[in-house]
Amino acid sequence: MCEGEYESLKAIYAVSPGFVPKPFAWGTYDQEGPEVYFLLAEFRDVGEQPADPMRLASRLAGLHQRSTSPTGKFGFHLSTCHAKIAQAVDTWNSSWCAVFSRHIGHTMSLAKPMLQWPEFDVVCQLTLEKVVPRLLLPLQSQGRELKPCLVHGDCWDGNTATDANTGDAFVFDACSFYGHNEYDTGNWRAPRHRLSNKAYIQNYEMHFPVSEPIEDWDARNLLYSLCFNIGNAIYIPGSQQRQVVYDDMTALYKLLSTHLTRIVLSPP
């Protein structure tokens, strides 16, 4: 967790200095007994949380636009952690669909034995086999190109703030990798987050337009939100996201099944 946080902050700081606390080091204490790890980073005085929509959106979009994958591909050079979940992003692949499938598939595999819900297992399989390729393959088909962007990885209310001394928006507690820029806004969908305020996504899209095909944006946003909500269902005591995730995956499958059927049945 400490190494992933350090590497995430270092990557973001290299592109957008000031948007994250400057990282200095990570390591383990020299002591007997259980290993204890540390992360050393610049102190930032936290003000208003979350940050102002205009300031946060512009800085996040700037990070996405200016970042460049060192391999030109999606993924990361090590696994980073979303809370206690070690994300399966430690790979490099030119296909965003392949990287995301591996990532969300790993998260689902952790959830299944904890939730012990056969119906959940079924909708997970349908999501991986049907929904993910239907929504993500078009991003890189028919001549479309998708830039691997450095994402924060867990951009929610508690991980963004206004610097009390400068007034600038900044983020922290990152679990980064190179992915589709819209992945970061998937965490803004949940009503439990104040970032669900429409002002955040509206300001973001002013700086970074929606990817083609535009008509798939809302379904993609719902798909990306699953990663965060599944994590919430696993690790947050009393979480209400178990049913929400199941309903969202069911809704996505039904929506896309209806859409695909309509295309097949329509006259040439």
Rank of each mutant, 00 (worst) to 15 (best):
P113N: 10
F74A: 02
I201S: 00
E212L: 11
V89N: 08
Y235P: 01
P148R: 10
C227L: 12
F208M: 06
D168Y: 04
R66P: 00
S266T: 09
W217T: 05
Q202D: 14
L39Q: 09
A161K: 00
Y253V: 15
S239D: 06
V89M: 07
C155R: 00
D90S: 11
P148Q: 09
Q116D: 15
L146A: 11
A86G: 10
L139Y: 04
R262D: 10
L135N: 03
P148A: 11
Y183N: 00
T28W: 11
P133W: 07
T127K: 09
I230K: 06
V99H: 03
E145K: 15
A219P: 00
Y246E: 05
E3I: 12
D154P: 03
H64Y: 14
A86I: 01
K10W: 12
E48C: 11
L128H: 04
S69W: 02
S225N: 03
H106K: 14
K22S: 12
E5N: 13
S58Y: 05
P113C: 08
H64I: 11
W117I: 04
A251M: 15
S79A: 13
S79R: 05
S69I: 07
Y29E: 12
Q31T: 11
T162L: 01
N197L: 05
P70F: 15
E3P: 06
G62F: 05
R134T: 13
P17R: 10
L150R: 00
E119K: 14
A51T: 03
L126A: 13
P138H: 03
S94T: 04
K22E: 12
G158S: 09
Y204L: 06
S109D: 15
R192S: 11
C2R: 10
Q142N: 14
G105Q: 05
V99N: 01
V99G: 04
A199P: 05
C149R: 05
A11W: 00
G62T: 10
E32K: 14
D216G: 06
G47Q: 01
L39N: 12
M108R: 08
F43K: 08
V171L: 06
D52A: 13
M108S: 09
A98M: 08
L136H: 02
V244H: 12
D52V: 05
N229W: 01
S211C: 13
Y6M: 12
E182M: 03
P113R: 12
R189M: 15
A219E: 07
V36F: 14
A161W: 02
L128M: 15
V131K: 07
Q202V: 06
H77C: 10
P133K: 09
G153V: 05
M108K: 05
T107N: 14
N187V: 14
I234R: 07
G62W: 06
V123F: 01
W156K: 03
V123E: 01
W92I: 10
L126D: 08
S239K: 01
P191G: 06
G179P: 00
G75Y: 00
H259F: 02
F170V: 04
C81W: 15
G143W: 02
Q49R: 10
L255G: 13
G27I: 08
P267L: 08
P237F: 00
L146W: 08
K112S: 12
K254G: 04
D121R: 09
Y37W: 14
A61R: 08
F76R: 02
M114A: 14
D121G: 12
